[in-house]
Write a protein that binds this DNA or RNA. Structure first.
Lengths: 132, 132
DNA sequence: CGGCATCCAAATAGATACTG
DNA sequence: CAGTATCTATTTGGATGCCG
């Protein structure tokens, strides 16, 4: 994993690999980017299926935005909207198997978020009592 | 990984774990969310250090936005701006070690982006020649 | 409850020109 | 080259009210 000798050869491969990675990350961000999509999927993976349940878990999201995000998620094959006819009609959203492909990504992001919060906390303490 | 018996006990733990995960992901998105930050870090990790180099790699970013994003990244400890006095002054941005904590996340996102693109491509093919 | 329509405010981003 | 300033256009989002 360490190299420093022949850089000319590396540079070209690096540029190509860079483009590949940038394209892939760009693709991913296009589909699951934004503040809410991953958070909605996380909330749903913990058993929240109803519109208002999800809205309660995902702090700060408005009904309009949640509605729009759910549509996007359905279009992209992560969830499905189920309408049960009865008195009254109940509507539930369910995760589809494809949403499980995000597990690794969500796990990585969760771990990073936790360690980042701790890093920030540690910096706060070590900045010579620089309170605001 | 399969459970269905005692759901009451699970639900409470689930709700707490849900909140933990949502908070962590929210923290992460706050710092590295948006279209550009990860892409800039990826480009820099492949050796791009100059402003225009980065702008060339990260397709579509404007100078104004790149400038603003670089400032954010510096504030959050991912990069450092180095000014070398000479004729003319050269300015380089370098990754700091903290940016390496993102490797797992970037890797997960890259893999997901690649597989997602392939899934979409496969769907295109299987949708009875439904060209647009 | 689960939304959608409307209106309006704020944030974001593109284009262009300009500077040291 | 490495930005900044300005202006404008577009996107996004909150608030509210309404509907089945």
């Amino acid at each position: 994993m360490k190299e420093s000798t022949q850089n000319q050869t590396d540079n070209k491969a690096f540029t190509e690999e860079c483009h590949t990675v940038l394209t892939a990350v760009s693709d991913a961000l296009y589909v699951i980017g934004g503040k809410w999509k991953l958070m909605i999927i996380i909330a749903m993976a913990r058993g929240n299926k109803r519109f208002t349940e999800i809205q309660k878990q995902v702090t700060g999201i408005s009904a309009r935005v949640l509605s729009s995000e759910l549509k996007d998620l359905e279009l992209n094959g992560f969830i499905i909207k189920k309408v049960e006819n009865g008195y009254p009609v109940t509507i539930e959203y369910e995760l589809l198997p494809y949403s499980q492909t995000l597990e690794e990504l969500v796990g990585a992001m969760t771990r990073w978020g936790i360690q980042h919060r701790e890093k920030v906390k540690a910096e706060m303490g070590s900045e010579k009592s620089n309170k605001q």
